[in-house]
């Protein structure tokens, strides 16, 4: 199954950390959405400026370049928390109990390893664009109006850093689950039963329909 899953909570340290991080992730998610809205406003300002004021928005393309990472990366951990990144679950969906948690641990660990490497790589990418000695600390700038690019590049290792913490919490959750066995692990995305989710979804859609 692709997305929706739920995360169980209790009073343990793991669960408290999970919820604390989730609050941060949600804020990042909203910022990411607001950046989309900003893209739209940017285009309207650009068109209106040109047609009505003969004053096109200078550096329209440059600003888009700066806004895109906000949209693309800030929400990565938010999506991971709820199990939102897509996958095939033909094989893993057949497993139950400890076997399932071991399987989840392995792929989550591989993801963690990738993210750690990418924190290194994207930090280096940021590092090449940043120079304390240069004006605006910039060693890489946008084409039209020369905006420094380093803040946008810095966003990537930062977002990946939070993703790394999220993955560590999930790994911890899977270790606990492997120890305890059963089907009620804390702090990791679960595939809810179809009936539970259908009820939830129906409620969501009807609230939207007004």
């Amino acid at each position: 199954m692709a997305g929706s899953s739920a995360v169980l909570e209790d009073g343990s340290a793991l669960s408290r950390l999970d919820r604390a991080l989730y609050r941060v992730e949600k804020v990042f998610g909203v910022i990411s959405g607001l950046a989309v809205l900003m893209l739209m406003v940017l285009a309207v300002v650009s068109v209106a400026g040109r047609h009505f004021f003969n004053a096109p928005l200078p550096g329209y393309v440059d600003w888009i370049q700066i806004a895109m990472p906000l949209i693309a990366f800030l929400g990565i951990s938010y999506a991971q928390r709820d199990g939102g990144h897509i996958r095939m679950d033909i094989v893993i969906g057949k497993l139950k109990g400890r076997a399932l948690w071991v399987g989840e641990f392995i792929t989550t660990f591989a993801t963690f390893a990738l993210i750690v490497l990418l924190i290194w790589g994207s930090w280096a990418h940021f590092g090449r664009s940043f120079d304390f000695g240069a004006p605006n600390w910039s060693r890489d700038s946008t084409i039209d109006i020369g905006l420094p690019i380093w803040p946008a590049k810095l966003l990537v290792p930062v977002a990946f850093g939070i993703m790394g913490i999220r993955l560590l919490l999930q790994l911890w959750g899977y270790v606990v689950a492997i120890g305890k066995g059963g089907d009620k692990p804390i702090g990791v995305p679960l595939m809810k039963s179809a009936a539970e989710l259908a009820a939830e979804e129906a409620e969501h859609v009807s609230s939207l329909d007004r």
Binding site: R87, M88, T107, A110
Partner: peptide
Amino acid sequence: VVLGMRVAF
């Protein structure tokens, strides 16, 4: 992918 790792990763 078949083992259930998230496709992007």
